[in-house]
């Protein structure tokens, strides 16, 4: 009987999400200033799979474009989008607030300050210290926003207050970051292009740098889906159901902040992915975090892949910063989510 099955990710939505992501990535690989033949790209990619040998017929220069420019960028876009969306879903579970988002919570801005500090103080190249410093910054940003939000929102009305506090913290941290950057103004253009929110830095070493942290963060988040469902009844009831609410909160908070930090460290500040994607997933596939977390990961990856594709083609040969594209979609969307939440709270 269907009703006796618990909410969990079913094969069909999962397959759809994977297909959408693959289609988005393929499109992003094919489109660009140097037109690549679709068949050749597919063959060249297949050739890289273990035990598969096909002759792609791609010229050396096209192969170079594909493997050194397009592929790292598409992969990085997918990774960043997935991380931001799954982090957003995680924060939403922790704060029981569908508006929580790495960008709106101050986590992204905090991560930016952390990363900038390391780059200004230590070196001018991406180093493994960058994601770690971003991580510390992200945690600091969230803690600040949460502290401010619960002081300002005493006695309830949490949803909007937390976001308002997050926006205030974000602005404050952005100004700190701007100040830090000025300390090395002469190198600004060259080193800190990522601050605009983009994937311009994409290359294999960058991907390799964040991969281990991203893997830890994502696995931790995905493992906590059921516990976040328990937490959705509130701390006290969750405790009566045998959950150490504080421990789950802290773990998920740390994992979401680590995911945010990885994304910010390589792509700068990209907003709204963490609100938009989980919200769409909830609408389409159900509200259980066992569904929302994995599908947000895939959906976020697809969303940012498409957003980057749009950003670099719509004003070609120029390029729209990625953060601008996501804000263009996400801003209005945010209002929709807010309305939905309000409508539910005040029937």
């Amino acid at each position: 009987m269907r009703t006796r099955e618990a909410a969990r990710l079913r094969p069909l939505p999962l397959a759809v999400a994977v297909l959408v992501l693959l289609a988005a990535m393929l499109a992003a690989l094919l489109v660009g200033p140097a037109g690549l033949p679709a068949a050749g790209v597919v063959k060249a990619l297949a050739d890289r799979l273990p035990f598969v040998h096909v002759d792609s017929g791609l010229a050396a220069v096209d192969r170079n474009v594909l493997f050194e420019l397009r592929l790292p960028r598409v992969l990085l876009g997918a990774v960043v989008g997935g991380l931001l969306a799954v982090a957003g879903a995680g924060y939403q579970g922790v704060f029981r607030n569908p508006l929580a988002d790495p960008y709106l919570l101050g986590a992204a801005a905090g991560a930016g300050v952390g990363a900038t500090l390391v780059i200004v103080v230590l070196s001018d190249r991406p180093t493994p210290a960058v994601p770690l410093a971003s991580f510390a910054g992200a945690l600091g940003g969230v803690a600040l926003a949460y502290g401010l939000g619960s002081t300002a929102g005493r006695g309830g009305s949490g949803t909007a207050t937390l976001v308002l506090a997050g926006v205030a913290v974000s602005s404050f941290l952005a100004s700190v970051q701007a100040f830090l950057q000025q300390a090395k103004a002469e190198e600004l253009q060259r080193i800190y292009s990522w601050i605009l929110g983009g994937l311009g830095l994409a290359d294999w070493p960058t991907l390799a740098m964040i991969a281990p942290y991203a893997a830890v963060a994502v696995v931790t988040l995905l493992l906590h889906g059921r516990l976040l469902d328990v937490l959705s009844v509130g701390d006290e009831e969750a405790a009566s159901l045998g959950l150490s609410a504080a421990r789950v909160r802290l773990t998920v908070l740390a994992a979401a902040s680590l995911a945010t930090a990885c994304a910010v460290a390589v792509s700068g500040l990209i907003g709204f992915v963490g609100v938009v994607v989980p919200h769409v997933v909830r609408r389409l596939a159900g509200g259980s975090y066992r569904i929302v977390l994995p599908l947000s990961l895939l959906g976020g990856a697809a969303f940012l892949t498409v957003a980057d594709l749009v950003g670099r083609t719509i004003v070609a040969p120029g390029e729209l910063p990625l953060g601008v594209v996501t804000a263009f979609v996400g801003g209005p969307f945010f209002v929709l989510v807010l309305r939905a939440v309000r409508g539910r709270a005040e029937p």
Partner: peptide, 14 residues
């Protein structure tokens, strides 16, 4: 509890 939190969207079974 007297005032339980009922997460909207969650099914009765879950």
């Amino acid at each position: 509890p007297q005032n339980p939190n009922l997460p909207p969207g969650m099914t009765v079974f879950d």
